[in-house]
Computed example of a mutant assay.
Amino acid sequence: MNRRNFVRSITSMRLLAELGHDHGLSMHTCLEGTGVRQRDLSDPLGIVSAEQELQLIRNLWAHRGNCPALGTQAGARYHFTAYGMLGFAMVSSPTLQSAFDISVKYSQLTFAFSHFKLKESEHESNIIVDTSDVPEALRQFITERDIAALLTVQRDLFPSQPVLYNLYFSFPRPARSDHYEAIYGVKPIFGCKETFAELNRKALAQPLPQANELALKSAEEQCQLVLERRLSGTGLAVKVRDRLLHGGVNLPDMKDVAKDLCVTPRTLHRHLEEEGVTFLELRDEVRLTLAENLLQNRNLLVKDIASRLGYSSATSFISAFRRWKGMTPLVYRNRFLS
């Protein structure tokens, strides 16, 4: 499955443009030919094509390809928070192995152009990195970036547990290789038949400190929704849901959302009706997602959650939650978060 066919969040392009800027490039140079404007990089809901991101990488490589370990420097910027709901799913996973499995399952929600294949032995898990379907001129940068990003997330999730044993690159040894060792934590071997990383299987099986079964389930559901939206197109209901989620607990009303989408409330209502959904139904769906996340914090009282979600009283919130889940918020919290 060619990753160049998938759209992705604009977050990766922002990280890459910031890398270029830190190396002395103007934003105009970084974004040249991408069709993306500098102000677009600040839109947390922005979606771009894989080709647009590849063009930015071409610009970086053309102007700063001589910088040691440029792709590795890029990957070190991809912390788990860059992956949105997928990052939340990974940090909620029971082990590092399961976090990796989640990232592979929803690989279209990552920014990787590489294909990761897992090959296991008794003591090691080898991750083979395949970049055969990306432009040859960019393979070194993308290989470095994707491996460094994978290890950066691993360190975010479990910084006290070293996982990487050895690292083998298929491209020749660069003039300077000290940058690689500084970022990866091991001395890579270059000029190999294929690129792969040897990981400690025992370390991968260690439980993650923030594992949460309910949070993982909720995050996976959101990942599936995001993936379905990106694969099926972008209807108006998708845009409304995204803007409601972006608002967090400060849910905007229909008038504000319509203004944000440059349509009248009447037009918004009509188009949503044509898509078989109402604004109130979308707002309830988002409220349920937010409520489930807030209930994970046992320090928050139900009345506080109700207030945060815009309900006039705790009773109104409890009634709505019972309608959604068939139980009260406290029963839900005690049953699934014990």
Rank of each mutant, 00 (worst) to 15 (best):
R8C: 11
S9W: 06
S12Y: 13
L16W: 06
G20F: 10
G20M: 09
M27Y: 15
L31W: 07
E32N: 08
I47H: 04
V48E: 04
E53D: 08
L54E: 09
N59L: 14
C67G: 01
G75T: 05
G75V: 02
A76R: 01
A82R: 04
V91S: 13
P94T: 03
Q97P: 00
S98F: 11
A99I: 01
S107L: 10
F111M: 07
S114M: 07
E124G: 00
I128M: 12
V134E: 03
A137N: 14
Q140D: 10
Q140H: 07
T143K: 06
T143Q: 14
I147C: 12
A149L: 03
T152F: 03
Q154D: 08
Y165C: 05
Y165D: 09
Y168M: 04
F171S: 05
P172F: 12
S177G: 10
H179N: 12
H179Q: 13
A182D: 15
I183D: 10
K193M: 10
T195H: 06
A197F: 04
A197V: 11
K202W: 11
L204W: 05
A205S: 13
E213Q: 11
S218Q: 14
C223T: 07
Q224F: 12
L225M: 12
V226C: 01
L227Q: 07
L227E: 05
S232I: 01
L236W: 08
V238Y: 11
K239F: 00
L244V: 05
L244C: 06
G247E: 01
K255M: 14
L261N: 07
T264D: 14
P265E: 10
L268V: 06
H271R: 13
E273D: 15
T278A: 09
F279A: 05
L282H: 03
E285W: 05
V286P: 00
L288C: 03
L300F: 14
D304N: 09
A306I: 01
S312E: 15
T315R: 06
F321T: 00
G326S: 11
L330S: 13
